[in-house]
Write a protein that binds this DNA or RNA. Structure first.
Length: 665
DNA sequence: ATAGGGTTAG
């Protein structure tokens, strides 16, 4: 019988001489600091390391004592020293234990010490040991050192190549990862299912260029297509290329699925904003008896937030609480964001308060939520709180802070925070400049906005001119508005926005010939206005409306309901604002067209189908028009309903005759 | 004995 100790001996002999199979190949020539024991001193010492106190005197006979001290900070060198003093001889299992601990605990410094020690041992030429070292460097994120180990190895096997490819792939160095594939083939090594899953992951984040399809073909040819890792990676790759049908057909073809396969497909739909499909897949996943993971939930919340599906979000949230009441920071952040983007900032706040650990993303999501809901003061309060407890703000943080100042009209505060950015090492980007232009512009300080653009350290982009154009529209400055629209049009000719706004400016001034000119320009440039869509949640289903919609089964009731509301709000003082109508038309026609804006249809429909007094949540794919905004203010009082309307980038809370944006948006 | 796929703010 061969016992364990004998096995070890055999193994270590084989390991020791694995390079000797080819006598022509020398051991790796390792330069300092890997070459000798003496170089140990050149490594930075781990924190709290005190060698004198830790190393017992005499020879160490106890293997368990050796194994106990992992590389967890101060014990790293201790164990190495014990190895030297032990009478048991070098033990490969012990080395591998140490390296694995370094790998799993992300201990790069300690890993280097083990590496140096190993290079001075009889394992300095061992292939497996090198593979472990390479993997350690790759997992600790030091791909340069991993590459160095790789380059200096005279013999490499499929583990060596796979470890490096995976390292590159996981560190977002996908170009380096895929570049190794042909080299590996030339070295006469066949990639296996491990190699292929990493390569597929890497090619998913690159542009679709045929390489990924080649890999797909390779998987088919070599019989890896039924492997669940390879299959899930393929699903993920195609879904990242937005070829969701191909992803689905690979998913359906898997003879064995697991959670990851499901998550890859759900995440694919989530990335494309297909919330309904993500939801139906989620139910399908439950029916198939798979347990959703934090990955599933964060994808789901992401998908639901993009459409603002609050009720469905609550349902998924409830499901998550039932199956796993633990809330991680990662999932908590997506949940918080879902509530904020679905119009329930109070729930978002609750999630934030319940988080056990908050990271920068938690803070940024909350601040963004406050800013979007028009709670400018609250944004600034929380921002100050964030600074006071020592969380370092990022460019994203400042964008929310500046947006908050802009929406609430806090010019001085905005200037203060803009100045503050550099103190926190955040260089203002063009987006921050655009927000400052917005800040001045909304406040009516158009000259200051113009001067700010002239003094910008970088070229203004379309967003900067867009902010100025919006301000000109708001304050009816045609000269400057036309100038801004032209600049914007030059920089972004495919965007119909500037021409739309320009024609709006002319329309609100009643200059219909200019409106006609701009509109003919739009025709020449094939510019098309994105059709306005509004949608509203009624009891777990979503109803979509477009302007002038006459195909809805309840169109007659909707029309009658809106007429009723219209009459009522006129009693409350509502005056239709026809300057938002772009067409040249007589007064009555203009007024009629206003009545069929999609958000008004959605509102009337919600009134018909929800209990009295309940809050109505409407989402819109473009900015709410001024007339609808005014109508909703009156309606919130006239029919005693709170209305929460999600715009392109902010929320309007209509209540008792006024809006949270204080008509400043 | 060593290598693998899925998630968040903008």
């Amino acid at each position: 019988m061969i016992n364990l100790a004998m096995k070890r001996r055999i193994w270590s002999c084989r390991a020791r001489f694995s390079y000797a199979l080819n006598p022509a190949v020398q051991g790796p020539t390792l330069s300092a600091p890997f070459s000798s024991h003496a170089n140990l001193a050149t490594f930075p010492e781990p924190d709290g390391w005190e060698s004198q106190n830790l190393v017992p005197s005499g020879v160490v006979e106890d293997k368990d004592l050796l194994r106990k001290g992992g590389p967890n900070s101060k014990t790293g060198l201790y164990v190495l020293d014990l190895i030297d003093r032990s009478s048991l001889g070098p033990d490969p299992v012990l080395y591998i234990d140490l390296i694995k601990k370094c790998t799993n605990l992300n201990k790069l410094k300690e890993g280097r010490l083990v590496h140096a020690h190993l290079m001075a041992s009889c394992f300095r030429d061992d292939l497996v040991m090198h593979n472990h070292m390479l993997n350690m460097y790759a997992k600790c994120g030091s791909l340069q050192e991993a590459r160095k180990v790789f380059d200096e190895m005279p013999v490499r096997d499929v583990f060596t190549w796979t470890a490096l490819i995976t390292g590159y792939s996981q560190s977002d160095l996908s170009e380096d990862a895929v570049a190794l594939f042909p080299q590996m083939l030339r070295a006469d090594l066949k990639p296996n299912e491990f190699t292929l899953s990493s390569l597929l992951k890497a090619s998913g984040v690159r542009v679709s260029d045929g390489f990924g399809r080649q890999l797909h073909g390779y998987c088919l040819k070599c019989g890896y297509i039924s492997n669940v890792y390879v299959g899930s990676a393929l699903v993920d790759m195609y879904s990242r290329w937005e070829k969701i049908d191909e992803a689905r057909s690979i998913f359906d073809g898997l003879d064995r699925k697991n959670e990851v396969s499901w998550n890859a497909l759900i995440a694919g739909h989530a990335r494309m904003g297909e919330a309904e499909l993500a939801l139906s897949l989620f139910s399908e996943m439950l029916r198939a008896d798979f347990k959703p993971s934090p990955f599933t939930y964060s994808s789901m919340f992401g998908a639901l937030s993009s459409m603002g599906f609050l009720e469905q979000g609550k349902w998924v949230h409830a499901h998550m609480i039932k199956s796993d009441p633990q809330l991680s920071t990662y999932v908590g952040n997506t949940l918080l964001d879902m509530y904020a983007k679905s119009g329930s900032i109070d729930d978002a706040e609750k999630v934030f308060n319940r988080l056990l650990r908050r990271d920068l993303i938690s803070w940024n999501s909350l601040l963004k939520g406050y800013a979007q809901h028009g709670r400018g003061r609250k944004t600034l309060e929380q921002f100050e709180e964030m600074l006071s407890i020592g969380v370092k703000p990022s460019d994203v943080t400042f964008l929310s802070v500046l947006t908050a100042c802009s929406h609430v009209g806090l010019v001085k505060e905005g200037e203060h925070y803009f100045q503050l950015m550099r103190r926190y090492g955040v260089e203002p980007q063009v987006s921050h400049h655009a927000t400052m232009v917005d800040l001045y512009g909304r406040a009516g300080l158009l000259d200051q906005a113009k001067r700010f653009i002239q003094n910008m350290p970088m070229e203004p982009n379309a967003a900067v001119w867009g902010a100025l154009l919006g301000a000109c529209r708001m304050h009816k400055n045609m000269e400057l508005g036309a100038y801004a629209a032209e600049r914007m049009f030059e920089l972004d000719p495919d965007n119909p926005g500037p021409l739309m706004l320009l024609s709006n400016i002319y329309a609100s001034a009643g200059r219909w010939s200019e409106v006609a000119m701009v509109r003919s320009m739009m025709k020449v440039n094939q510019a098309k206005k994105e059709p306005a869509i509004s949608w509203v949640d009624i009891e777990n289903s979503v109803h979509t409306f477009v302007a002038n919609d006459d195909t809805h089964p309840q169109r007659e009731e909707i029309r009658k309901m809106w007429e009723k509301v219209n009459t009522k709000i006129k009693e409350f003082g509502y005056v239709p604002d026809t300057s938002h109508v772009l067409f040249y038309a007589d007064q009555q026609e203009k007024e009629e067209r206003l009545q069929v804006h999609s958000e008004k249809l959605a509102f009337a429909f919600a009134l018909l189908n929800t209990p009295p007094g309940s809050t109505i949540r409407i989402k819109k794919n473009i900015r709410v028009c001024g007339d609808c905004h005014s109508a909703f203010k009156f309606a919130s009082k006239a029919v005693e309903r709170e209305i929460i309307l999600r715009d392109t980038n902010r929320f309007h809370h209509f209540r008792d005759g006024s809006c949270s944006c204080r008509d400043y948006w």
